[in-house]
Design a protein around this nucleic acid. Structure first.
Length: 454
DNA sequence: TCTGGGGTCCTAGGACCC
DNA sequence: TCTGGGGTCCTAGGACCC
């Protein structure tokens, strides 16, 4: 049996743990750059505020109802998540950390020790609440897709006490019948529209479509699996996460800029900061990357801007996998040159690292250069010196930033230039950095931000 | 004035190989 | 009138998830 434990309104709940005066009141958390609503308390949902709604469109409504606003504080949410996952790892036989606020659990054999899986799920819920202050719901069922569905019903019906166990066929049929097809895990707008046209309205309807139909209309093998899982036949197993942290197949870092940028040096500054951050995550995960992608985007909401809104360029690193910021950055610069269209106003940029593997696994020396002095790229405009790898330097960089705080030591390219500092009028603000007007303190990860109890 | 970020999986076309 | 087939790699993009 699978369990799915999902934190309720996770970001809002994290804020409330440290500022309980916001319990019972409408609260929202905004995305980076204070752009959109990404977490809502029950009271905020009751006001009709939607997930993903742009802040500027509901500004007045928020003011009118005295809704409390937070900028997102990922230092806080990430740390609270780590605590929740650590406890689950200590308590359940196996845990797959699925996202920052939810985890799949292997519950095999737990009924022997706790009487029933329903009882065990309630204990888990209470355990997370008492250790972290975070409220959760748990769904239990024979497949992951049904566990998601059970969790959803538990969230919508407070009288269930936060837990729903679909332990037999009747209960599963009852559950399937009450969930709209668009709320099934794996069905979003495009598919929901297609399904509605075919007369498939509920999860129960979807569980009845043929394998061939699912394959044809719901993205091939993915759709076929989805239908099987709804029928109670597991198609995907649990992928346990080592020590509560999740190891990724790809890593990325991207941001919408604080203001539109059209100078190469500004966008390159942003790309430098993003490469630095992505490479830090890579080294923290103990991996190297073989494939690098850079992309730059125009403002897709602007009336006078035509698609394509985004261009990307990908390179398999000729020197083989690396985790060295300076090496990655020299290739990123070449890729940015390849994408760059002079006179264009850019809105966002990002970098992606793929082909992740532990150091040494895929080590391959280039024919024309050693791993420490790679060959230049082919195209004329990309010809340049690729920085040599310096693992010692990277280790020192990470150690200094761990000791003295994030960003204590950075590459010069990722530091805002003096004229930006003057122009912005405050300390370190780079032109690519976004707004965060309502950020709460880093209660659990910065010593100066610790709460003082009198 | 103002519209997020970080992931997964799958498909399709072109280049290239034998 | 005629112009292989099958495989892999690379790149780009679509759909979905939280």
């Amino acid at each position: 049996m699978y369990g799915l434990l999902d934190c309720n309104n996770f970001y809002v709940s994290c804020e409330r743990v440290f500022q309980p005066r916001y319990e019972g009141r409408p609260v929202v958390v905004l995305s980076n750059n204070d752009g959109n609503i990404i977490s809502r308390s029950a009271e905020a949902k009751a006001l009709g505020l939607k997930m993903g709604e742009p802040y500027f469109q509901v500004k007045e409504l928020l003011k009118q109802h005295d809704v409390t606003i937070f900028s997102s504080n990922y230092a806080l949410y990430g740390d609270m998540s780590r605590r929740v996952m650590w406890y689950l790892g200590q308590t359940a036989p196996a845990v797959e950390v699925y996202s920052i606020d939810e985890a799949f659990l292997d519950l095999a054999g737990m009924e022997k020790y706790h009487g029933s899986l329903d009882t065990f799920a309630r204990k888990l819920r209470a355990g997370v609440r008492s250790r972290t202050g975070i409220p959760t719901c748990v769904g239990v069922a024979p497949t992951k897709t049904l566990a998601k569905l059970a969790n959803r019903i538990a969230k919508k019906n407070p009288d269930l006490g936060g837990v729903l166990y679909l332990d037999n066929a009747e209960r599963r049929a009852w559950a399937l019948a009450q969930v709209e097809v668009g709320d099934v895990w794996g069905i979003s707008r495009q598919y929901a529209t297609k399904l509605a046209a075919a007369g498939v309205d509920t999860a129960a309807d979807l569980a009845r479509v043929s394998d061939a139909w699912a394959r044809k209309h719901l993205g091939g093998v993915v759709g076929a699996r989805l239908v099987q899982e709804l029928q109670g036949r597991p198609c995907t197993g649990l992928h346990p996460s080592e020590d509560g942290t999740l190891s990724r197949q790809s890593l990325s870092c991207s941001r919408t800029f604080g203001r539109p940028l059209s100078a190469f040096s500004d966008v390159y500054g942003a790309v430098s900061a993003f490469v630095s951050r992505a490479a830090e995550k890579l080294r923290a995960q103990g991996d190297t990357a073989h494939v690098l992608t850079v992309y730059i985007s125009k403002n897709r909401f602007a009336a006078n801007v035509l698609p394509p809104f985004s261009r990307s360029a990908t390179l398999t690193l000729p020197i083989g996998p690396t985790a060295d910021t300076t090496v990655l950055l020299s290739y990123a610069r070449a890729l940015l040159h390849r994408l760059w269209e002079p006179g264009t106003v850019y809105h966002k940029a990002g970098v992606v690292l793929d082909g992740l593997e532990p150091p040494g696994v895929g080590l391959q020396l280039s024919l024309f250069g050693s791993a420490t002095s790679p060959p230049p790229l082919k195209a004329k405009q990309e010809e340049q010196t690729i920085a040599p790898a310096r693992p010692g330097l990277m280790a020192s960089l990470d150690a200094l930033n761990l000791r003295f705080g994030k960003g204590a030591v950075r590459l010069a390219a990722a530091v805002p230039s003096p004229e930006h500092r003057t122009a912005a009028g405050k300390g370190n603000t780079a032109p690519w950095e976004g707004k965060a007007q309502w950020r709460s303190p880093a209660f659990t990860t910065r010593l100066e931000d610790l709460l003082v109890v009198r």
